[in-house]
Amino acid sequence: MRLRAFVSSLALAGASVALVAPVAHADGCTGQGYGYTNSTYSVSYSPGCNTQARIDRYYGGVVHQYYGSWGSTSYVYNANGYNAGNYFRLGPSAWMRI
């Protein structure tokens, strides 16, 4: 990953939040972002960023990757198979697992 952001995680009520340090150097972002996830959805938000949410699910013997729309707020959901990881896109080629 090109970027490494400070991350703190909370795990409450079956969901977790990852607070991401300001990523203004990534692609014009203007503020602090966050990722929010549980086993079936991933949300990412960074004001002014070309952020994306991603969720990886295994089924049929292979991983399927689901990506949210580009934008300040991105949400993606899938319940097929089992969760293989949720991700928060910080910038070009920079994904952080949340």
């Binding site: 990506y67 993606v76 899938n78």
Partner: peptide, 21 residues
């Protein structure tokens, strides 16, 4: 639009993202 791929396509999508993001 949201989208999906079968298999790990991270590197390819990162390469193609500048054309759309």
């Amino acid at each position: 639009y949201t989208f999906s791929t079968v298999g790990d396509a991270t590197e390819v999508l990162d390469a193609c993202s500048p054309h759309v993001e």
